[in-house]
Design a protein around this nucleic acid. Structure first.
Lengths: 145, 145
DNA sequence: ACATTCACTACTCATTTAGTAGAGAATATA
DNA sequence: TATATTCTCTACTAAATGAGTAGTGAATGT
C-alpha cells in the first residue's frame, strides 16, 4: 500500500506548478529548489506527466512548464495514473489471462471492486482545490522559517 | 498501487479457511492443494494472520487452522494490515518525523485523507460475505473441471 | 550563433519480493 | 512415553523494483 517516490514528487510538482504558473511558464529549476527535489530526478517523472497530457513543456529561453488544461480538470487519479500506469491493486483484475483461476476467484472480484472504489476516491481530488488549500496555509509551499 | 503476493494469498487462504472450517480445523496442506500455494510459502504469511488474532493454529495430529473469531467480524482491512502492517499510502502520514515539510505540505494531507478513505472501504468487506459469494459460484473454490 | 531548457539513455546501489530448504517445537494418540 | 504429524522459525537465494546520478542530445527564443 505504499506509493512510489515518483508519485509523491509528481503531486508536489503539480501543486507547485499550479500555484506558480500565472500567465508565464515555470522552470523545473525553480520547482526543484522550492520542493527540494533534484532537477535530475524531476527529469524522470515530468515527461510522464507530459505524455499523459497534464502539462505542456517548452524548451530554450522562456521555456518551462505549464498546465495543459485547467487545474480544476486535473485529478489525483490523472496524476497517479500518468506516473504509475492504470490503477489496479492486483494484476489479474486488468489482465485475467495471467491467472487461470481468474474466472472463479472471489478474491479477484473483491480486488476489482476495491480498485474501482479507490480510483473513484482519487478522481474526486482536483488540482485546483489542492493548490488552493496549499495556498491557504500561507507558507508559499516553501519550507523555511 | 500493487498489493504483494502475500496479501493476495492471505485473502485466498482466509476465504478457503472460512469455507472449509466447520467444527473441525483445516490443514495448511489442504489449503495449499486447493489454492495451489506451496506449503512453504503459506508458512510465511500464516503466522502473521495468527499474531494479528485472525486465526488459531494447533499442531500435531488433528492440528490445523481455524478462525479466531466469527467470519463476519474479520474484514479485508484486518487481513491486509495483518500481513503488511498499518495501511498508509506514504510514510509521512503515520510518521511525520521522516519529512521536515510534513507540517506545511498539502500533499501529505491529501494522502492522509485518501488513506483513511481506502481503509474505510477495506473495512466494509467482511470474510463471511466474501466466503458466501465464493460459495455461490458453485466451484468449491478449486480450479478444476 | 548561442545560452538556455527540457528529454533521453545508461548506469549504479540498496531494498524488497517471492520464493526454497531445513531444522526445530508442540501435540494428539496409540 | 514414543511417534507421526503439523505448525514455526531462521537462513539463504535470485530476480525485480526503487531511487537516484551522470552525461549527452535535441529544441528554441533572442
Amino acid at each position: 500500500m505504499k506509493l512510489t517516490t515518483k508519485v509523491r514528487y509528481s503531486l508536489r510538482f503539480m501543486i507547485d506548478l499550479a500555484l506558480h504558473v500565472e500567465g508565464a511558464t515555470v522552470l523545473a529549476r525553480d520547482i526543484s529548489r522550492r520542493q527540494e527535489i533534484s532537477e535530475k530526478y524531476i527529469g524522470h517523472f515530468v515527461p510522464l506527466l507530459k505524455s499523459a497530457g497534464l502539462i505542456r513543456a517548452s524548451r530554450g529561453a522562456r521555456g518551462g512548464f505549464s498546465l495543459a488544461r485547467p487545474a480544476s480538470e486535473i485529478t489525483l487519479k490523472d496524476i497517479v495514473e500518468a506516473v504509475e500506469g492504470p490503477m489496479c491493486l492486483v494484476g489479474c483484475v486488468n489482465d485475467p489471462g495471467i491467472c487461470k483461476r481468474a474466472g472463479t476467484c472471489q478474491a479477484r472480484d473483491v480486488w476489482g471492486e476495491a480498485t474501482r472504489a479507490i480510483a473513484d476516491i482519487f478522481s474526486r481530488y482536483n488540482l485546483e482545490k489542492m493548490a488552493e488549500e496549499q495556498r491557504s496555509r500561507h507558507t508559499d509551499y516553501v519550507y523555511a522559517i
